[in-house]
Design a protein around this nucleic acid. Structure first.
Length: 589
RNA sequence: CGGGCUGUAGCGCAGCUUGGUUAGCGCGCUUGUCUGGGGGACAAGAGGUCGCGAGUUCGAAUCUCGCCAGCCCGACCA
């Protein structure tokens, strides 16, 4: 039993000024967590109990699925990460430090290397596989900008699993077992989620999905099809592509378009100038082909310029580009870059100035909607001039396609063509098939049935444990405070004495509390003296235990009040029946 | 890493423009009395390196410079 008279807790009447998102605000106000470092939080008793409930559910589901728990150090030597290249590739987000003999160490941001190495050390036969092992561990990332409390810290807890299989079918099966385990886990945590297609990114590999809790404060943007259920992180969306057309277009024609360096100015010029006006059709921004230049910075420092052609009604989405070109990093051209490429006229760049066979030699990739037979208005590579009716495949041929254009609300689904919606989400889980990248780099092989060495294929699966606590808070609160799902609440029942300190309420509540505890119900007992009922009620709502029991003025008639935190529904029950009633509530599935 | 805002008691804030006794208010905390179903009242208290460091000045919370930290937007982010 937790007695509030003794509990290490102080609730705050005002919102902390540095907290913006609800989970951060309420967890601090209700006395669950406290900021201790940039991006680091102390868990106070109520918070730690909730955290442990979440962790236990995750652990339980992992164990049920047959995965085995291990535990690595967070402090690791440089060598394994050197072997996979991540010591440098991980960049500034890696916490690096030195010991007294000047050896390099790091605080692990994730543990692929260590898991791979330990399996290599212990196992050497296909008969040992498949294997899935996991840990629940504190991770460190030197985030440029920790924010939103627990949602993005520099120190956080993650459950990370790794699967090891001899072939692709095995990997597929391990992947699906994790997917199922994640579904059960998030269902138990009562976290709403959408499973979206994701990029496997620099990690390599193929299949990759994210579990996103659809909450506006989330940092990921995803699309969802209103009809077929397709969902994807915007980084991973494939645009719906029209078929190549056989339409016959007039010859390409260069027209004077003075002072039209932007799509807007170009479109309004086309619609007003005598030589370009069309009787039956207003020019629109989607008729234009916008050519944007980027520099790709490769991990080895090499810089490669890249030209991207997209419909003029859209912007380039750098996140999407990065997902395509990883591990290279895309950076927009600066004025200095344009100066270094005098054949590229900013605002008037056309397909003829770019492409590997052009004078510039710059690789030219276009949006997949720019297909054979489509006609475009685009730059004529001369200030104040554009060309109309420039036909892809006839007048120019790009070097390839790239998913670079921003995704807009209402865009057609690439699967079924229906309109897609866009929403934000918190990434609460990520599962993906790593393949053989780490096994190859660290030489993880086993003998197959024929006695041949084969490289193991791996999967990697993460759940942010501390982030899950915040995500639950984000999806389970109201203006008065938290409303925990029963499975993760720090106690089952919040029992409040509402009466004079020497009134009959106290002995009745004490008896009830003892009875509940004896029946196995975890009670947070507000037995504080000299605290008015109003204060206790406010605290109870802030703290958010799902059922609040009030021993108050009804006690003279032998009644206590049972209140549902979420619905506000209340009922008076004879004190003799309360324990059975609450027990049923708590044990309800 | 760029732009904007901010840093004064556990929490929320005023004071800074125009430098000047002992830095103030509300909440919270301590003691007492009253109160006792929605953060109650009165009284008396405790609690501060004014983010840190230099500088200007007879004198700096206040002015200048540098740094650090926080929040928001963007960049970044298996």
């Amino acid at each position: 039993m937790l007695r509030m008279s003794k509990l290490f807790l102080r609730t705050l009447r005002d919102d902390p000024s540095d907290a913006e998102v609800p989970s951060h605000r309420l967890l601090v106000r209700a006395g669950y967590i406290r900021r201790a470092a940039p991006g680091g939080f102390t868990w106070l008793p109520l918070g730690w109990m909730t955290y442990r409930k979440v962790e236990d559910i995750i652990r339980d589901e992992m164990n049920k699925a047959g995965f085995q728990e291990v535990h690595f150090p967070a402090l690791l030597p440089r060598e394994p990460y050197e072997a996979t290249g991540r010591w440098t590739e991980y960049g500034p987000n890696l916490f690096r430090l030195k010991d007294r003999r000047d050896n390099d160490f790091l605080l692990a941001p994730t543990h692929e290397e260590m898991f791979t190495l330990i399996v290599r050390d212990l196992f050497s036969s296909y008969r040992d596989l498949p294997l899935s092992i996991y840990q629940i561990q504190t991770k460190y990332r030197d985030e440029a900008r920790p924010r939103a409390g627990l949602l993005r810290g520099r120190e956080f807890v993650m459950k990370d699993s790794y699967s090891f299989d001899v072939d692709d079918e095995g990997l597929e099966s391990s992947y699906n077992r994790h997917r199922e385990a994640y579904i059960s886990t998030f269902d138990r945590l009562q976290l709403p989620y959408v499973i979206v297609s994701a990029m496997s990114g620099a990690m390599g590999g193929s299949a990759s999905e994210e579990f996103l809790a659809p909450i506006d404060v989330g940092e990921d943007t995803f699309v969802q099809c209103t009809s077929c259920g397709y969902a994807a992180n915007t980084e991973a969306v494939n645009v719906a592509v029209s078929k190549p057309t056989d339409a016959v277009h007039p010859d390409a024609l260069v027209v004077d378009t003075p002072d039209t360096p932007t799509i807007d100015t170009l479109v309004s010029h086309l619609n007003s100038a005598a030589d370009t006006q069309q009787p039956d059709h207003q020019w629109a921004s989607e008729d234009t082909l916008k050519n944007v230049l980027l520099n790709l910075v490769h991990p080895d420092g090499r810089i490669e310029p890249l030209a991207i052609g997209i419909p003029g009604n859209r912007e380039v989405d750098l996140k999407r580009v990065e997902a395509q070109v990883a591990p290279a990093e895309p950076i927009p051209f600066t004025d200095a870059d344009f100066a270094a490429h005098p054949t590229l006229i900013k605002g008037y760049i056309g397909p003829k100035a770019v492409g590997v066979d052009s004078p510039s030699g710059i690789r030219y990739l276009v949006d997949p909607r720019v297909v054979h037979g489509t006609a475009w208005v685009t730059g004529a590579n001369s200030p104040g001039h554009h060309v109309i009716n420039l036909v892809c495949g006839r007048d120019f041929t790009p070097d390839g396609t790239i998913e670079a254009a921003e995704v807009l609300e209402g865009d057609p689904c690439s699967n079924c063509g229906s309109a897609m919606t866009i929403a934000r989400g918190i990434e609460i889980g990520h599962i993906f098939q790593l393949g053989r990248k780490y096994a190859t780099a660290l030489d993880l092989k086993v003998l197959d049935a024929e006695g041949q060495q084969i490289t193991v294929t791996m999967g990697s699966y993460g759940i942010g444990v501390s982030r899950a606590v915040a995500a639950i808070a984000e999806s389970h609160h109201d203006e008065n405070g938290l409303c925990w799902p029963r499975a993760v609440a720090p106690a089952d029942i919040h029992l409040v004495i509402a009466g004079k300190d020497d009134g009959p309420q106290r002995p009745a509540a004490e008896t009830l509390a003892a009875e509940l505890e004896a029946a196995g119900v975890a009670v947070l007992f507000d037995d504080r003296e000299g605290v008015s009922p109003g204060v206790k009620f406010k605290d109870a709502e802030l703290i958010g235990i799902p059922t609040i029991v009030i021993v108050g003025r009804g006690i003279t008639d032998g009644l206590v009040e049972v209140k549902d935190r979420l619905t506000g529904e209340r009922s008076d029950l004879p004190i003799g029946e309360v324990t059975a009633h609450l027990l049923a509530l708590v044990q309800a599935p």
